[in-house]
C-alpha cells in the first residue's frame, strides 16, 4: 500500500508543472498574526511557502509554529530546518513532530553562523551538516529507522528539500555538492538569489551533465530588490548573495521612488529567463521582507493565480510515494 503524500508542492512538481514558492519570516514576538497576514497576501499565488528558521541567526518565532500558522491559514508550508541550533536528537525529534502535525515539506540547510545574528555568543551546534541530516531524514522516512537504527512507528512522511548556491566558490564543486545532497535524499532544491542568469545557466549545464535535474526538482531563487539600501545590505551582509554590476547599475540608474518598480521588473525578467533553461522546475521568491511585492512580480512574469493540484495527482504519478 503506497502512502499518499498530501504535499501540493510535490504534486505540482510530479505533474511536471512549473512550481512557485515564496518565503515568510516569522515575527519576533509570540503571535502568529503576522504569519497569517503574510499568508493572506500569498495564498493562491504560490504552491507552498518557506517558513524560515531563525534566519540570519536572529531569534524569531519557531519555524514549526510558523508552519502550523501558515497551514491553518490555508497555505502549504515548507518548514526550514537548519543544523545550527539543534543536535541530531532534536533534529530527528522535530522532523517527527512536523510530520505528525501535517507539515509535509521540509527544507534542510546548514544555517547561518550565530556570529551573524542577535546572539553572537551562542554555541554553534552543527552536530550534523545539511547533507548528513538529509541522509538521516531519508533513512527515517524510507527505512523507518532513526540514525541509531531504532525503528520508527510510523515513520515520518516528508518531501525533502535542500538549498544550493550556484555562485559560490569553488565553482567546479557546486553542482557536485547538489549531487551529494540528492544522493543523501534531497528531492527538490531552491537556489540562492539568481541575478546573474548566464552564471546560473552555466551551473545548470553542470547539473545536466550529472543528470541531477532528473532526480531532483530545481527551483531558481528570485527576489525583487526594493531599494538601493536593501541591495547594498544584501551584498555586504547576507553571506552568499552576489549582485552583478549590471543589476546594480539598473537599480541605481532610476530615481529613488522607482527603484522598487525596477527591482520587481528585474525579478520578473529573471523568472522569464530561468523558465527557458531546461531542467528548471520552478521559482522560489525570496521576499526579503517584501511579501507584498510577490503577486506583482509573478503576474508580470506571466505566472498568474495557481490552479489547484490535488493529492490525487500524486497517487497517479509514479514519482509519488
Amino acid at each position: 500500500m503506497e502512502l499518499v503524500s498530501t504535499s501540493a508542492l510535490r504534486a505540482r512538481l510530479a505533474a511536471g508543472g512549473f512550481a512557485v514558492t515564496a518565503e515568510i519570516s516569522p515575527p519576533r514576538g509570540a503571535s502568529g498574526d503576522p504569519v497569517r497576514r503574510k499568508a493572506d497576501l500569498l495564498r493562491g499565488w504560490v504552491d507552498a511557502v518557506n517558513v524560515t528558521d531563525n534566519q540570519g541567526a536572529h531569534v524569531r518565532l519557531s519555524s514549526m509554529a510558523g508552519s502550523m500558522v501558515a497551514l491553518s491559514a490555508g497555505l502549504e508550508p515548507i518548514m526550514q530546518m537548519t543544523c545550527r541550533d539543534r543536535n541530531r536528537i532534536a533534529l530527528q525529534s522535530d522532523l517527527l513532530g512536523a510530520s505528525a502535525l501535517g507539515i509535509r515539506n521540509v527544507l534542510v540547510m546548514t544555517g547561518d553562523h550565530p556570529k551573524f545574528g542577535d546572539h553572537p555568543g551562542a554555541k554553534p551546534v552543527f552536530d550534523l551538516d545539511s547533507i548528513q541530516f538529509l541522509w538521516a531524514a531519508r533513512t527515517m522516512r524510507d527505512e523507518g529507522t532513526l540514525m541509531s537504527g531504532r525503528t520508527l512507528n510510523p515513520p515520518p512522511d516528508c518531501f525533502l528539500g535542500a538549498v544550493e548556491n550556484p555562485f559560490a566558490p569553488p565553482a567546479g564543486f557546486r553542482a557536485e555538492r547538489l549531487g551529494k545532497k540528492v544522493a543523501a535524499g534531497a528531492q527538490f532544491v531552491q537556489t540562492q538569489f539568481v541575478f546573474d542568469v548566464p552564471a546560473f545557466g552555466e551551473w545548470m549545464s553542470q547539473v545536466h551533465d550529472l543528470g541531477l535535474h532528473e532526480r531532483c526538482h530545481i527551483l531558481a531563487g528570485v527576489g525583487a530588490i526594493r531599494s538601493v539600501r536593501a541591495m547594498e545590505f544584501m551584498a555586504d551582509n547576507v553571506p552568499g548573495v552576489y549582485i552583478p554590476e549590471e543589476t546594480s547599475r539598473r537599480l541605481r540608474g532610476v530615481p529613488g521612488d522607482r527603484v522598487a518598480e525596477e527591482g520587481a521588473r528585474i525579478a520578473a525578467e529573471v523568472i522569464q529567463q530561468v523558465r527557458e533553461i531546461p531542467g528548471v522546475a520552478g521559482v522560489h521568491l525570496l521576499a526579503a521582507g517584501n511579501e507584498a511585492a510577490v503577486p506583482g512580480v509573478l503576474s508580470a512574469a506571466g505566472l498568474g493565480l495557481r490552479d489547484t493540484v490535488t493529492g490525487d495527482a500524486v497517487a497517479g504519478d509514479s514519482h509519488g510515494r
Partner: peptide, 30 residues
C-alpha cells in the same frame, strides 16, 4: 571550518573564496 562541515562548503563562501565567519581565512573547502 567554523561549522565543522564534513561534506563540503556552506553557501556563504565569499566570491574571493573567503570564509563567511572568518573572512581573513580562506574557506577550508575551497
Amino acid at each position: 571550518c567554523p561549522k565543522e562541515l564534513r561534506n563540503g562548503p556552506c553557501g556563504g563562501v565569499g566570491a574571493d573564496g573567503s570564509c563567511e565567519v572568518h573572512p581573513e581565512m580562506r574557506c577550508v573547502w575551497v
